[in-house]
Every structure is written in C-alpha cells, then in structure tokens.
Design a protein around this nucleic acid. Structure first.
Lengths: 354, 354
DNA sequence: GTTAACTTCGGTTACGTACACGAAACTAGT
DNA sequence: ACTAGTTTCGTGTACGTAACCGAAGTTAAC
C-alpha cells in the first residue's frame, strides 16, 4: 500500500510546455543530439528528472521506422541430436514477440562437425550489416576471431550455451558446466553405496566440445573428492557419435568392471541407455543431460534415472531478448546469466518446461 | 531457409486502397462495428485474409487511449511466511513491462488467517470497474461466490497457486499438487531403506489450505502404494503456525517412533528443520516446499535435503501476462498451466530462478 | 416531390515520438 | 550596419491505428 504515485503519464509535450521550448528541443536533449544550448539543456534535463519522464516505447518504435537487424549463429539441427532445436524455438518465440516492434532476425546455421561451415557463416554475418549477434561459440578459436571482428565493428554479441570467458561479450547465457557436473555427482550419491564403481562417458566428435564436457567432469569428480567418497571413477572418451561405435566402446568400458552408475556428460545419454537395454544389462544407474525426446523415453522406462537440463529454449529466448533490450532500451545486462540446473525424473518430466 | 515470406508489412491504408474504400471503413470491419454493407464488408474481409493482415499492436495501443485495469487479489506478505512475496514480485515485474502499454494494475491484499478480509477486498474489486482479475482462491467458498460475481460481470479471471476446478476461469496457473507430492515420494525413495518410517507433516491454520495440502499427501502416498513400498507412513496435522506449537507437536509425533524421513507438505518446513537442529536430532531426512530464505538456509546446512519449488514468481508474472494477452490480443489460453516441479538441493540452489 | 430517418461511408484529428527542414537569434568579420 | 556563418530552436509531417463527425446515398412515408 502507500506510494501509488499516480503521476499522470507525461510526455515530451508537457516537458516542452514547462520548459517553454518546443518538443523538438526536448527531443534533442533526450537523444543527446547537438544543437541545444547548455542552459536550456540543463533546464530541460532538470524537468525530465523531476517528472521522472519515461518515454513511451510504443510511440517511439512506431515513429522510428528503422528496423533492427539481429543475426543468430547456431548449430544446424541434425538428425544426430535435435538439441539445438530447443534454443532455436526460443529464438523463434522471441522473434514473434518483437517482430511487430520492428526487429528482424537473420538465422545462420553451421555444421557441428565442420569447422569451415562455421567460419563461412560467420563471414556472412560479418559482411551483413546487422546490429547485434547471438552466437553459440562451439569452435573456440574460430569464435574468438569472429568475436574480434564484431568488436571492431562495435557490434554487440551475446554468447549462449557455452562460454568463452575474458572476451567482452555483452553477456553469456547458459549453464555453469562445473556446477552441473557437481550436482550430477550429488544425485549420484543418492544412488550409490561406498564401494560402487562409476563410469564417466564423454561422447563427442569435436575436440572443442570435449573441452566443455571436461568442466562437467571436473565438477563431478570434485564432489566425490570434497565429500570424501572413495568410489572408483572410470572414464571413457567416445569420439564417434554413431550408435554402433558407442555400443562397442561401451562394451569395452564395462568389461571386467563392476560399474553401478554411468554419468554421460552430454545429451547423448540415450545411446548409452539404448545400449544397456539392448544388451540386457540391469542394475546400472544412469545420469545424463537434456530434455530430448529420446532421453525422455528412457527416463520413462527407468533406464535413465536423472536428466539434468538447463532450459535450452529459454537460452535462445533470453539471448535475443537481451540483445533487443540492450539495443532498444539500452538496458544494462548481467555479464553472466547462469541457467538454473534442473533435475528431471520420471515423476516430474511431464511438467518440465524447457 | 525456405519460406521467408517477405511480405512488406501492410496496414489498413493498403487494404483501404485495394478495396476502394476509406480506412475508416476498413477499421469498422476490423472491429466488427456496424455501418458497413454486407457487400463491402465481404470484400474487405477477403483482402484482409489475402494479405494476412496483422494489426500493428504498437499503433493500436497508442491510438486507443483507453487504459486496461487489472485487479490482483492475493494474500498479504506476512512475517509468518514470505511466500507470497514471490508471486507479488512476478506481478510487479509484469506490471513494469506493460505499464507503458496502457495497463494499470490494482493490488488488493487479504489476511491468510482472516476470511472476512478476503470477502472485503473481493467486494472492493467487484465494485471497482476493472477489466480482469488475478486471484489466489485460498478460501474456497468465498472464492466461488466472488467468481460468480466476476462471471456475471463478464469479467475474465485467472487463478494462481491453487485451483478451483469446474469454474470456467480463463485459466489456472500453478502447481499440480498431486504430482508434486508424488515426486516428493520418489525422491524420498532414494533416501530410504525398506523399513524406514516416514512422517508427513501438515502445518496450516486454515482448513481450506489443508484441503490443498491433502492433495500432495495423496500423491505422496500413491507413490508408495504403486511401487509396493511398505514403509510405515505416519502423519500429523499441526494447526498452529507458531514455532513453539510446531515444536511441541513434533516432539509428540516423533516420540516412540523411528522416523527416518519427514515430508512437510508446504513451505513451513523450516520450522521443522529448526526443531530438528535445536533438539539435536540427526539422521532424519527432510523434504519440503518452496525457495524461501529460511528454507534455503537449512538446505545449505544439510538439515533439509530437498526442496520442491514451483516458480512462484513466474506464477504471478504469467498470471498477469495471460490476462493482458487475452484482453489485448484476444490470445487464446491454455485452461491449465501446470508449473514445472523443480527439485532444489544444496548443489543447485544457487542457480535456481524462482 | 418533399421531408425525415436511416444506412453507409469518407475526411479528419489524435495518440506520443522522430526527424527533416527552415526560421530566428546570435556571432564575427568587414 | 550589413553580410555570412553558426548556433539554437520551432513548425510540420510521418508512423499505423482509433474514433468522432458529418456528408453523401438510400429508403419510406406523406
């Protein structure tokens, strides 16, 4: 209750009246344009302060006919994994929401297994004259050089999904990889006894992605170290993503051991689950990542015990909105926006919103 | 790729030109106003179809100077529990977002321990001439009669936090209570052995709230029944919310038993945790609800093992936005929007967003 | 055929802001 | 004091839509 502050919404007109100037002059002050004497500028600014003037965004976007061009550079949605479909959905959703506010979004896709396609698309963006970029920096070196060209063009960019720190991006929106690995370990703790053995599985073709998976692994191991859990932790890197390859790799990895829990460091956990099912291996708990159709199927059946998810749709959505709010409202942004680390089980997946 | 459909955004002017009428006539058709012959109406509608005309929301809200009045009726944030601070934040956030779009939000608060205050505030809303209502129907009968008055005034309303089904509200936004109880049981399963005893704790003054807690309890019990878990499940209803009362009740409840897990059916779990800590009881796992400051403190220390949370901020935010989108864009809405059932632990609470 | 009443429609202004254009005021140089 | 140049400012139009007002056209009654 209390401070309702029923100030009748005032506009430039009222400011102009009070300052004995025209609205054009007020407009000049508002946009920090030249052509106003220091004296009147001060007077107008005082009145703006006093009235706590907030420009009418509606009228503003309507009057300014210029359109905002945003570019998006993310992996192509492949049949191999449809993870990137989620961020794309968020991006599309944001697009629909702000389309009528004069924002155009240009989408560029690259092949996760082909660095050159990334460079190619990045160059296209660099040439196109756009106002901001949303980028999934999957290839580290290539991303860095693209980022440099953005900086030189004074073009703001937002990173999603995986961070490249110490670049001065507008912000990073995505998971805290280390923390999500740590949480996975914590969940594992509930499923294990003192002597059970653990297998960490990294499945990824590109070395750069491996780099990201490593951070999860570190977090995972750290939990066991901090909590003085002495379970044996084995690890396997699988460098091909086809099921056949995963299968034979897993067979090797499980051989002669007594693994009780498998931690798959990314969304490819469904391959592992499929393997366990097909080879009729029971009694192994499985933890992995991402709310994908395949993964959910195995979660339902109980082959996968936990999925950790980090709101991929929202990552895309927030990425675009951050650019928009920054460019249109010059809103300040958090440098790092870590996504919540969501735990999905058989019992709550129905209610999960990516 | 593909269908870019670069239709230059057309407006009423273009439609008027093509139909050889004035924009005023097009406007009449768009708003289903009278004064247009069937013939020209048909012609104009055909053109609207053809061009897939989408009105410019900016210009629309700008030109129509009428403001939208939304009323909010939720519990007062008390020192007893600051749960309702969260939905209020979401409401305020939505308010800020759409304030410049000509929306005014009027907030009414009632005392959770005083039915008459609810009725009083509800009457105020009924008298005020507003365009939509966001309602937390904590008192069932009183809510029903308020809802009736809304319906008779043809005033859309949205329910949050707890549902009163079979009323034709615009929609319900909130948890699936049953499912969240079920999930709580599932999590409990990880923490228990076959023979461990369980205590369910309901803490609530008002009988109507109890009714909601009951649904969680049902879900909880159902899990154990479905999964043929034979653990003893005890239960206690605590009808005073002061710590002293909770303390003595808990002492009784734990007496002569060997409880290994406590499931508190609402956010008052911190009272129980405090009790366990103060009386130096260890070895009992605790599961409860809501991301509240007090609860998080105990989660950090390990006294509480799991918190289940259902995005209270978002409930408020979405509630307002749903009304807004429905009234302004006549957007259709899902009748039931169940919030995700989030699991919060010591390891991921830092990254949780209410 | 005149008047009245009603139907159908167009012209116009307004919403709050952006910006091009040109007018006034001031400065400096002669 | 007159001009040229510069600074400072106001007028006017545009954005796409809403809605008032009144002008045509149409119909009905005498």
């Amino acid at each position: 209750m209390g401070k309702d502050s029923e100030k009748e919404l005032v506009g430039v007109k009222e400011i102009a009246r009070r300052a004995n100037v025209s609205i054009a002059t007020v407009d000049r002050v508002l946009h920090h344009r030249s052509g106003v004497s220091e004296k009147t500028k001060a007077k107008i600014q005082a009145i703006i302060e006093e009235l706590d003037y907030k420009p009418n965004i509606l009228a503003r976007r309507l009057a300014s006919k210029k359109v905002l061009h945003l570019a998006v550079l993310i992996p192509l949605v492949s049949q191999e994994t449809d993870y990137w479909n989620a961020p794309l959905m968020g991006i599309t959703q944001a697009e629909e929401e702000i389309a009528s506010y004069g924002v155009k979004i240009h989408k560029y896709f690259f092949d996760l297994n082909d660095r050159s396609s990334f460079v190619e698309q990045a160059n296209l963006i660099a040439d196109s004259q756009c106002d901001g970029v949303l980028l999934a920096p999957m290839f580290i070196e290539e991303s860095k050089s693209f980022i440099q060209s953005c900086i030189s063009k004074d073009m703001p960019y937002v990173l999603i999904n995986s961070d490249i720190p110490e670049q001065n991006s507008l912000c990073y929106i995505g998971p805290n990889l280390y923390a999500s690995g740590y949480l996975a370990a914590h969940l594992s703790g509930f499923l294990l006894t003192e002597t059970d053995q653990i297998l960490i599985v990294n499945i990824s073709k590109e070395i750069d992605n491996h780099h990201h998976l490593l951070r999860k692994e570190e977090g995972f191991r750290e939990y066991f170290s901090v909590n003085k859990r002495a379970n044996d932790i084995f690890k396997i890197d699988i460098r091909q993503t086809t099921y056949e390859y995963v299968k034979s790799s897993m067979q090797n990895a499980l051989d002669n051991k007594n693994i009780k829990l498998i931690f798959v460091t990314n969304s490819r956990v469904s391959s592992v689950a499929r393997f366990l099912e097909e080879t009729n291996i029971h009694g192994i708990k499985v933890i992995g990542f991402d709310f994908l159709k395949d993964n959910i199927e195995f979660l339902k059946k109980g082959t996968i015990d936990f999925l950790i998810c980090q709101k991929p749709i929202e990552q895309g959505y927030k990425g675009i909105m951050t650019l928009y709010n920054h460019l249109v409202f010059s809103q300040e942004v958090e440098k790092v926006y870590h996504m919540p680390i969501d735990i999905i089980t058989k019992e709550n997946y129905l209610y999960y919103r990516n």
